[in-house]
Design a protein around this nucleic acid. Structure first.
Lengths: 209, 209
DNA sequence: AAGATATCTTTACGGCGCCAAGATTGCCCT
DNA sequence: AGGGCAATCTTGGCGCCGTAAAGATATCTT
Protein backbone atom coordinates (compact mmCIF):
# COMPACT_ATOMS: atom_id res chain seq x y z
CA UNK A 1 0.00 0.00 0.00
CA UNK A 2 3.04 2.22 0.22
CA UNK A 3 6.75 2.26 -0.40
CA UNK A 4 9.79 2.77 1.74
CA UNK A 5 11.53 4.98 -0.79
CA UNK A 6 9.89 7.44 -3.11
CA UNK A 7 8.30 5.68 -6.06
CA UNK A 8 11.00 5.82 -8.69
CA UNK A 9 12.23 9.22 -9.73
CA UNK A 10 11.41 10.63 -6.27
CA UNK A 11 10.50 14.08 -7.56
CA UNK A 12 11.48 16.97 -5.34
CA UNK A 13 7.87 17.41 -4.40
CA UNK A 14 6.33 14.30 -2.97
CA UNK A 15 2.81 13.89 -4.29
CA UNK A 16 1.03 13.66 -0.97
CA UNK A 17 3.60 13.60 1.79
CA UNK A 18 1.08 14.17 4.51
CA UNK A 19 -0.71 10.97 3.57
CA UNK A 20 2.61 9.12 3.19
CA UNK A 21 3.76 10.25 6.63
CA UNK A 22 0.61 9.05 8.36
CA UNK A 23 0.94 5.71 6.59
CA UNK A 24 4.62 5.44 7.45
CA UNK A 25 3.91 6.26 11.09
CA UNK A 26 1.15 3.67 11.25
CA UNK A 27 3.38 1.06 9.68
CA UNK A 28 6.27 1.77 12.06
CA UNK A 29 3.90 1.77 14.98
CA UNK A 30 2.57 -1.68 14.17
CA UNK A 31 5.89 -3.24 13.24
CA UNK A 32 8.41 -1.65 15.61
CA UNK A 33 6.21 -0.54 18.45
CA UNK A 34 5.50 2.89 19.91
CA UNK A 35 8.95 3.38 21.43
CA UNK A 36 10.58 3.14 18.00
CA UNK A 37 8.44 5.84 16.50
CA UNK A 38 10.51 8.97 16.04
CA UNK A 39 9.71 11.73 13.65
CA UNK A 40 13.05 11.15 11.98
CA UNK A 41 12.28 7.47 11.52
CA UNK A 42 8.94 8.32 9.96
CA UNK A 43 10.65 10.73 7.58
CA UNK A 44 13.23 8.07 6.76
CA UNK A 45 10.49 5.52 6.10
CA UNK A 46 8.79 7.99 3.77
CA UNK A 47 12.08 8.63 2.00
CA UNK A 48 12.32 12.26 2.95
CA UNK A 49 14.55 14.54 5.00
CA UNK A 50 14.14 14.82 8.79
CA UNK A 51 12.69 18.32 8.61
CA UNK A 52 10.19 17.68 5.83
CA UNK A 53 7.33 16.61 8.13
CA UNK A 54 7.27 20.07 9.68
CA UNK A 55 5.65 21.44 6.55
CA UNK A 56 2.64 19.20 7.16
CA UNK A 57 2.49 18.91 10.95
CA UNK A 58 3.29 21.48 13.61
CA UNK A 59 5.20 18.92 15.61
CA UNK A 60 5.42 15.22 16.36
CA UNK A 61 2.30 15.12 18.48
CA UNK A 62 0.25 16.56 15.65
CA UNK A 63 1.31 13.68 13.43
CA UNK A 64 0.22 11.27 16.13
CA UNK A 65 -3.07 13.12 16.41
CA UNK A 66 -3.66 12.39 12.74
CA UNK A 67 -2.87 8.71 13.25
CA UNK A 68 -5.19 8.63 16.24
CA UNK A 69 -7.97 10.31 14.28
CA UNK A 70 -7.85 7.57 11.67
CA UNK A 71 -7.94 5.04 14.47
CA UNK A 72 -11.10 6.57 15.90
CA UNK A 73 -12.70 6.50 12.49
CA UNK A 74 -11.92 2.80 12.10
CA UNK A 75 -13.15 2.02 15.59
CA UNK A 76 -16.33 3.94 14.92
CA UNK A 77 -16.92 1.85 11.81
CA UNK A 78 -16.29 -1.39 13.72
CA UNK A 79 -18.83 -0.36 16.34
CA UNK A 80 -21.39 0.57 13.70
CA UNK A 81 -20.92 -2.79 12.03
CA UNK A 82 -21.33 -4.75 15.26
CA UNK A 83 -24.42 -2.80 16.13
CA UNK A 84 -25.99 -3.36 12.73
CA UNK A 85 -25.32 -7.07 12.69
CA UNK A 86 -26.53 -7.90 16.19
CA UNK A 87 -29.70 -9.95 16.53
CA UNK A 88 -31.26 -7.59 19.07
CA UNK A 89 -30.35 -4.45 21.03
CA UNK A 90 -29.38 -6.24 24.24
CA UNK A 91 -27.01 -8.48 22.35
CA UNK A 92 -25.75 -5.49 20.40
CA UNK A 93 -24.30 -4.03 23.58
CA UNK A 94 -22.17 -7.10 24.15
CA UNK A 95 -21.20 -7.33 20.52
CA UNK A 96 -20.12 -3.71 20.40
CA UNK A 97 -17.91 -4.43 23.36
CA UNK A 98 -16.41 -7.45 21.64
CA UNK A 99 -15.84 -5.45 18.47
CA UNK A 100 -14.18 -2.70 20.48
CA UNK A 101 -11.73 -5.05 22.15
CA UNK A 102 -11.05 -6.90 18.92
CA UNK A 103 -10.14 -3.63 17.27
CA UNK A 104 -7.69 -2.88 20.05
CA UNK A 105 -6.19 -6.36 19.73
CA UNK A 106 -5.78 -6.05 15.99
CA UNK A 107 -4.31 -2.54 16.15
CA UNK A 108 -2.59 -2.39 19.53
CA UNK A 109 -0.14 0.37 18.67
CA UNK A 110 -2.74 2.60 17.08
CA UNK A 111 -5.13 1.98 19.93
CA UNK A 112 -2.51 3.07 22.37
CA UNK A 113 -1.80 6.23 20.43
CA UNK A 114 -5.51 7.01 20.38
CA UNK A 115 -5.57 7.31 24.15
CA UNK A 116 -2.04 8.61 24.64
CA UNK A 117 -2.60 11.67 22.51
CA UNK A 118 -5.87 12.34 24.27
CA UNK A 119 -4.06 12.06 27.58
CA UNK A 120 -1.27 14.39 26.53
CA UNK A 121 -3.83 17.05 25.70
CA UNK A 122 -4.38 16.99 29.44
CA UNK A 123 -8.07 16.24 29.06
CA UNK A 124 -10.86 15.63 26.68
CA UNK A 125 -12.48 19.05 26.76
CA UNK A 126 -15.45 18.21 28.92
CA UNK A 127 -17.34 15.04 28.15
CA UNK A 128 -15.93 13.92 24.83
CA UNK A 129 -15.98 15.76 21.57
CA UNK A 130 -14.72 15.20 18.05
CA UNK A 131 -14.39 11.91 16.28
CA UNK A 132 -14.74 9.61 19.26
CA UNK A 133 -17.92 11.39 20.17
CA UNK A 134 -19.62 9.57 17.33
CA UNK A 135 -18.62 6.16 18.70
CA UNK A 136 -19.73 7.15 22.17
CA UNK A 137 -23.14 8.18 20.89
CA UNK A 138 -23.61 4.89 19.12
CA UNK A 139 -23.18 3.05 22.39
CA UNK A 140 -25.53 5.39 24.17
CA UNK A 141 -28.17 5.02 21.48
CA UNK A 142 -27.87 1.27 21.68
CA UNK A 143 -28.74 1.50 25.35
CA UNK A 144 -31.89 3.34 24.34
CA UNK A 145 -32.64 0.64 21.81
CA UNK A 146 -32.21 -1.89 24.58
CA UNK A 147 -34.86 -0.23 26.67
CA UNK A 148 -33.15 2.51 28.62
CA UNK A 149 -35.24 5.55 29.31
CA UNK A 150 -34.21 8.24 26.81
CA UNK A 151 -35.38 10.92 29.23
CA UNK A 152 -33.04 9.87 32.01
CA UNK A 153 -29.87 11.47 30.71
CA UNK A 154 -27.95 10.75 33.87
CA UNK A 155 -28.64 7.04 33.87
CA UNK A 156 -27.82 6.94 30.18
CA UNK A 157 -24.50 8.64 30.67
CA UNK A 158 -23.69 6.41 33.59
CA UNK A 159 -24.50 3.23 31.70
CA UNK A 160 -22.55 4.33 28.65
CA UNK A 161 -19.59 5.41 30.73
CA UNK A 162 -19.54 2.15 32.66
CA UNK A 163 -19.68 0.14 29.46
CA UNK A 164 -17.02 2.23 27.77
CA UNK A 165 -14.67 1.99 30.71
CA UNK A 166 -15.08 -1.77 30.90
CA UNK A 167 -14.31 -2.16 27.22
CA UNK A 168 -11.29 0.11 27.44
CA UNK A 169 -10.01 -1.70 30.50
CA UNK A 170 -10.36 -5.10 28.91
CA UNK A 171 -8.78 -3.84 25.71
CA UNK A 172 -5.73 -2.55 27.55
CA UNK A 173 -5.33 -5.67 29.64
CA UNK A 174 -5.76 -7.96 26.65
CA UNK A 175 -2.93 -6.16 24.91
CA UNK A 176 -0.31 -7.21 27.41
CA UNK A 177 -1.78 -10.01 29.46
CA UNK A 178 -2.41 -13.29 27.80
CA UNK A 179 -5.32 -14.66 29.81
CA UNK A 180 -4.22 -17.97 28.30
CA UNK A 181 -6.10 -19.99 30.84
CA UNK A 182 -9.43 -18.30 30.31
CA UNK A 183 -9.07 -18.08 26.56
CA UNK A 184 -8.38 -21.79 26.30
CA UNK A 185 -11.16 -22.71 28.69
CA UNK A 186 -13.70 -20.58 26.89
CA UNK A 187 -12.72 -21.49 23.36
CA UNK A 188 -10.70 -18.62 22.04
CA UNK A 189 -10.03 -14.98 22.57
CA UNK A 190 -13.30 -13.66 21.18
CA UNK A 191 -15.31 -16.07 23.29
CA UNK A 192 -13.40 -14.83 26.31
CA UNK A 193 -14.20 -11.22 25.52
CA UNK A 194 -17.85 -12.10 25.05
CA UNK A 195 -17.90 -13.90 28.39
CA UNK A 196 -16.53 -10.83 30.17
CA UNK A 197 -19.19 -8.58 28.70
CA UNK A 198 -21.94 -11.07 29.40
CA UNK A 199 -20.72 -11.25 32.97
CA UNK A 200 -20.85 -7.50 33.33
CA UNK A 201 -24.47 -7.68 32.18
CA UNK A 202 -24.48 -4.29 30.55
CA UNK A 203 -28.12 -4.44 29.60
CA UNK A 204 -29.25 -6.46 32.58
CA UNK A 205 -29.91 -3.63 34.98
CA UNK A 206 -32.14 -1.89 32.49
CA UNK A 207 -34.69 -4.65 32.67
CA UNK A 208 -34.98 -4.19 36.40
CA UNK A 209 -36.28 -0.66 36.03
CA UNK B 1 10.80 14.35 52.54
CA UNK B 2 13.79 14.86 50.27
CA UNK B 3 16.09 17.53 48.95
CA UNK B 4 16.92 18.84 45.53
CA UNK B 5 20.62 19.11 46.26
CA UNK B 6 22.62 16.80 48.45
CA UNK B 7 22.00 17.53 52.11
CA UNK B 8 24.76 19.95 53.02
CA UNK B 9 28.32 18.76 52.54
CA UNK B 10 27.19 16.54 49.67
CA UNK B 11 29.79 13.86 50.37
CA UNK B 12 31.26 12.11 47.37
CA UNK B 13 29.26 9.05 48.25
CA UNK B 14 25.58 9.74 48.52
CA UNK B 15 24.16 7.87 51.47
CA UNK B 16 21.43 5.97 49.66
CA UNK B 17 21.31 7.16 46.09
CA UNK B 18 19.05 4.36 44.95
CA UNK B 19 16.37 5.52 47.37
CA UNK B 20 16.96 9.16 46.47
CA UNK B 21 16.62 8.42 42.75
CA UNK B 22 13.31 6.63 43.18
CA UNK B 23 12.03 9.53 45.26
CA UNK B 24 13.28 12.09 42.76
CA UNK B 25 11.67 10.20 39.89
CA UNK B 26 8.38 10.00 41.75
CA UNK B 27 8.50 13.69 42.54
CA UNK B 28 9.26 14.68 38.95
CA UNK B 29 6.58 12.36 37.69
CA UNK B 30 3.91 13.95 39.84
CA UNK B 31 4.98 17.55 39.35
CA UNK B 32 6.20 17.69 35.76
CA UNK B 33 4.40 14.74 34.22
CA UNK B 34 5.70 11.59 32.55
CA UNK B 35 7.02 13.33 29.46
CA UNK B 36 9.42 15.41 31.53
CA UNK B 37 10.97 12.42 33.22
CA UNK B 38 14.43 11.84 31.84
CA UNK B 39 17.16 9.95 33.59
CA UNK B 40 19.29 13.06 33.44
CA UNK B 41 16.56 15.13 35.06
CA UNK B 42 16.25 12.58 37.84
CA UNK B 43 20.00 12.69 38.41
CA UNK B 44 19.88 16.49 38.41
CA UNK B 45 17.04 16.45 40.91
CA UNK B 46 19.04 14.14 43.13
CA UNK B 47 22.08 16.41 42.79
CA UNK B 48 24.24 13.90 41.06
CA UNK B 49 25.94 13.41 37.68
CA UNK B 50 24.03 12.03 34.68
CA UNK B 51 25.84 8.71 34.77
CA UNK B 52 25.50 8.08 38.50
CA UNK B 53 22.15 6.25 38.26
CA UNK B 54 23.76 3.51 36.22
CA UNK B 55 25.45 2.18 39.32
CA UNK B 56 22.04 1.45 40.81
CA UNK B 57 19.86 0.67 37.79
CA UNK B 58 20.73 -1.12 34.59
CA UNK B 59 18.91 1.50 32.57
CA UNK B 60 16.06 3.98 32.68
CA UNK B 61 13.34 1.38 32.49
CA UNK B 62 14.70 -0.39 35.54
CA UNK B 63 14.34 2.82 37.53
CA UNK B 64 10.76 3.08 36.38
CA UNK B 65 10.23 -0.55 37.38
CA UNK B 66 11.25 0.39 40.88
CA UNK B 67 8.83 3.32 40.92
CA UNK B 68 6.09 1.06 39.61
CA UNK B 69 6.82 -1.56 42.24
CA UNK B 70 6.28 0.99 44.99
CA UNK B 71 3.06 1.98 43.30
CA UNK B 72 1.77 -1.58 43.33
CA UNK B 73 2.63 -1.85 47.00
CA UNK B 74 0.66 1.30 47.77
CA UNK B 75 -2.28 0.17 45.68
CA UNK B 76 -2.24 -3.20 47.39
CA UNK B 77 -2.43 -1.46 50.75
CA UNK B 78 -5.32 0.73 49.60
CA UNK B 79 -7.22 -2.34 48.46
CA UNK B 80 -6.59 -4.14 51.73
CA UNK B 81 -7.83 -1.12 53.66
CA UNK B 82 -11.02 -0.83 51.62
CA UNK B 83 -11.71 -4.51 52.00
CA UNK B 84 -11.20 -4.43 55.75
CA UNK B 85 -13.41 -1.42 56.30
CA UNK B 86 -16.36 -2.52 54.19
CA UNK B 87 -19.58 -3.41 55.96
CA UNK B 88 -20.03 -6.69 54.09
CA UNK B 89 -18.35 -8.64 51.29
CA UNK B 90 -20.72 -7.51 48.54
CA UNK B 91 -20.10 -3.89 49.44
CA UNK B 92 -16.40 -4.60 49.75
CA UNK B 93 -16.24 -5.32 46.02
CA UNK B 94 -17.57 -1.87 45.19
CA UNK B 95 -15.40 -0.19 47.79
CA UNK B 96 -12.27 -1.89 46.50
CA UNK B 97 -13.12 -0.55 43.09
CA UNK B 98 -13.59 2.94 44.47
CA UNK B 99 -10.30 2.72 46.37
CA UNK B 100 -8.56 1.52 43.21
CA UNK B 101 -9.77 4.44 41.14
CA UNK B 102 -9.08 6.92 43.91
CA UNK B 103 -5.51 5.71 44.08
CA UNK B 104 -5.13 6.26 40.34
CA UNK B 105 -6.62 9.73 40.68
CA UNK B 106 -4.31 10.68 43.52
CA UNK B 107 -1.20 9.28 41.82
CA UNK B 108 -1.91 9.61 38.12
CA UNK B 109 1.69 9.63 36.95
CA UNK B 110 2.71 6.66 39.08
CA UNK B 111 -0.38 4.76 38.04
CA UNK B 112 0.49 5.28 34.44
CA UNK B 113 4.03 4.08 34.97
CA UNK B 114 2.70 0.98 36.69
CA UNK B 115 0.98 -0.14 33.52
CA UNK B 116 3.44 1.33 31.03
CA UNK B 117 6.36 -0.65 32.39
CA UNK B 118 4.25 -3.79 32.41
CA UNK B 119 3.32 -3.12 28.82
CA UNK B 120 6.89 -2.51 27.73
CA UNK B 121 7.87 -5.90 29.10
CA UNK B 122 5.64 -7.09 26.26
CA UNK B 123 3.43 -9.08 28.62
CA UNK B 124 2.75 -10.03 32.14
CA UNK B 125 4.30 -13.49 32.09
CA UNK B 126 1.14 -15.52 31.97
CA UNK B 127 -1.65 -14.52 34.31
CA UNK B 128 -0.05 -12.00 36.63
CA UNK B 129 2.87 -12.49 38.94
CA UNK B 130 4.87 -10.43 41.36
CA UNK B 131 3.62 -7.57 43.45
CA UNK B 132 0.34 -6.92 41.68
CA UNK B 133 -0.53 -10.56 42.09
CA UNK B 134 -1.23 -9.85 45.72
CA UNK B 135 -3.77 -7.17 44.87
CA UNK B 136 -5.41 -9.41 42.30
CA UNK B 137 -5.81 -12.20 44.86
CA UNK B 138 -7.44 -9.86 47.33
CA UNK B 139 -10.14 -9.07 44.81
CA UNK B 140 -10.63 -12.73 43.96
CA UNK B 141 -10.89 -13.67 47.62
CA UNK B 142 -13.44 -10.94 48.17
CA UNK B 143 -15.58 -12.57 45.49
CA UNK B 144 -15.41 -15.78 47.50
CA UNK B 145 -16.39 -13.87 50.61
CA UNK B 146 -19.31 -12.48 48.66
CA UNK B 147 -20.61 -15.93 47.88
CA UNK B 148 -18.77 -17.06 44.75
CA UNK B 149 -18.09 -20.76 44.54
CA UNK B 150 -14.45 -21.29 45.50
CA UNK B 151 -14.40 -24.49 43.45
CA UNK B 152 -15.33 -22.79 40.21
CA UNK B 153 -11.93 -21.39 39.32
CA UNK B 154 -13.03 -20.28 35.89
CA UNK B 155 -15.97 -18.25 37.10
CA UNK B 156 -13.75 -16.75 39.78
CA UNK B 157 -11.12 -15.71 37.30
CA UNK B 158 -13.71 -14.30 34.98
CA UNK B 159 -15.39 -12.28 37.69
CA UNK B 160 -12.10 -10.96 38.99
CA UNK B 161 -10.87 -10.11 35.53
CA UNK B 162 -14.08 -8.31 34.65
CA UNK B 163 -13.93 -6.31 37.85
CA UNK B 164 -10.25 -5.48 37.45
CA UNK B 165 -10.69 -4.36 33.85
CA UNK B 166 -13.61 -2.15 34.78
CA UNK B 167 -11.64 -0.50 37.53
CA UNK B 168 -8.63 0.02 35.31
CA UNK B 169 -10.77 1.42 32.54
CA UNK B 170 -12.52 3.85 34.82
CA UNK B 171 -9.21 4.84 36.40
CA UNK B 172 -7.69 5.67 33.04
CA UNK B 173 -10.70 7.59 31.83
CA UNK B 174 -11.01 9.52 35.05
CA UNK B 175 -7.43 10.68 34.67
CA UNK B 176 -8.07 12.65 31.51
CA UNK B 177 -11.79 13.06 31.19
CA UNK B 178 -13.57 15.23 33.63
CA UNK B 179 -17.02 13.66 33.73
CA UNK B 180 -17.99 17.01 35.20
CA UNK B 181 -21.64 16.52 34.50
CA UNK B 182 -21.90 13.17 36.23
CA UNK B 183 -19.68 14.14 39.11
CA UNK B 184 -21.76 17.21 39.83
CA UNK B 185 -25.04 15.36 39.44
CA UNK B 186 -23.97 12.56 41.75
CA UNK B 187 -22.33 14.67 44.41
CA UNK B 188 -18.62 14.43 43.82
CA UNK B 189 -16.02 12.29 42.22
CA UNK B 190 -16.08 9.45 44.71
CA UNK B 191 -19.85 9.19 44.51
CA UNK B 192 -19.53 8.99 40.76
CA UNK B 193 -17.02 6.14 41.00
CA UNK B 194 -19.30 4.32 43.42
CA UNK B 195 -22.23 4.73 41.06
CA UNK B 196 -20.30 3.19 38.21
CA UNK B 197 -19.37 0.15 40.25
CA UNK B 198 -22.87 -0.23 41.60
CA UNK B 199 -24.15 -0.08 38.06
CA UNK B 200 -21.77 -2.80 36.97
CA UNK B 201 -23.18 -4.94 39.75
CA UNK B 202 -20.01 -6.86 40.36
CA UNK B 203 -21.53 -9.07 43.03
CA UNK B 204 -25.00 -9.15 41.55
CA UNK B 205 -24.58 -12.09 39.25
CA UNK B 206 -23.29 -14.24 42.07
CA UNK B 207 -26.64 -14.14 43.80
CA UNK B 208 -28.35 -15.47 40.72
CA UNK B 209 -26.40 -18.71 40.81
C1' DA C 1 48.49 0.53 55.93
C1' DA C 2 47.39 -1.15 51.44
C1' DG C 3 44.97 -3.03 48.04
C1' DA C 4 40.38 -4.21 46.38
C1' DT C 5 35.81 -2.62 45.54
C1' DA C 6 31.99 0.21 45.25
C1' DT C 7 30.50 4.61 44.06
C1' DC C 8 30.59 8.82 41.59
C1' DT C 9 32.48 12.12 37.66
C1' DT C 10 34.07 13.37 33.17
C1' DT C 11 34.01 12.82 28.54
C1' DA C 12 32.10 11.27 24.44
C1' DC C 13 28.93 9.13 20.82
C1' DG C 14 24.84 8.79 18.19
C1' DG C 15 19.94 9.80 17.98
C1' DC C 16 16.24 12.74 19.02
C1' DG C 17 12.82 17.10 18.31
C1' DC C 18 12.88 21.21 16.33
C1' DC C 19 14.42 25.73 14.16
C1' DA C 20 16.43 28.80 10.52
C1' DA C 21 18.30 29.51 6.10
C1' DG C 22 18.74 28.11 1.52
C1' DA C 23 17.45 25.22 -2.70
C1' DT C 24 13.88 23.56 -5.83
C1' DT C 25 9.53 23.27 -7.76
C1' DG C 26 4.63 23.90 -9.12
C1' DC C 27 1.12 27.32 -9.75
C1' DC C 28 -1.12 31.53 -10.79
C1' DC C 29 -1.53 35.84 -12.94
C1' DT C 30 -0.96 38.96 -16.55
C1' DA D 1 4.39 32.29 -22.43
C1' DG D 2 6.97 33.71 -18.80
C1' DG D 3 7.92 35.84 -14.28
C1' DG D 4 7.09 35.96 -9.68
C1' DC D 5 5.49 33.73 -5.51
C1' DA D 6 4.38 30.56 -2.26
C1' DA D 7 4.61 25.92 -1.13
C1' DT D 8 7.61 22.22 -0.49
C1' DC D 9 11.82 19.96 0.55
C1' DT D 10 17.06 19.93 2.12
C1' DT D 11 21.03 21.19 4.83
C1' DG D 12 23.08 22.39 8.98
C1' DG D 13 22.91 23.25 13.65
C1' DC D 14 21.24 23.62 18.66
C1' DG D 15 20.38 21.46 23.01
C1' DC D 16 18.57 17.47 25.05
C1' DC D 17 18.46 12.58 25.62
C1' DG D 18 20.23 7.55 26.91
C1' DT D 19 24.23 5.24 27.79
C1' DA D 20 29.12 3.41 27.40
C1' DA D 21 34.13 3.93 28.81
C1' DA D 22 37.63 5.54 31.56
C1' DG D 23 39.27 8.06 35.38
C1' DA D 24 38.68 9.93 40.34
C1' DT D 25 37.45 9.21 45.16
C1' DA D 26 35.71 7.13 49.13
C1' DT D 27 34.75 2.88 51.82
C1' DC D 28 35.62 -1.91 53.01
C1' DT D 29 38.60 -5.83 53.85
C1' DT D 30 42.46 -7.90 55.54
Amino acid sequence: MSNTQAAESRPYHHGDLRRALIDAATRLLETEGPSALSLRAVAREAGVSPAAPYHHFKDKSELLDAVAAEGWTMLDAAIAKARAEAANPAEALDEIGVAYVCFARKNPAIYRVMYDTARDKEAFPVDMEGVEDSAYCKVRDTFIDAGANPEDAQELELATTAAWCSAHGLAEMANFKQFEHLKDALGGEVAFFRAVFKRLGLAASLRED
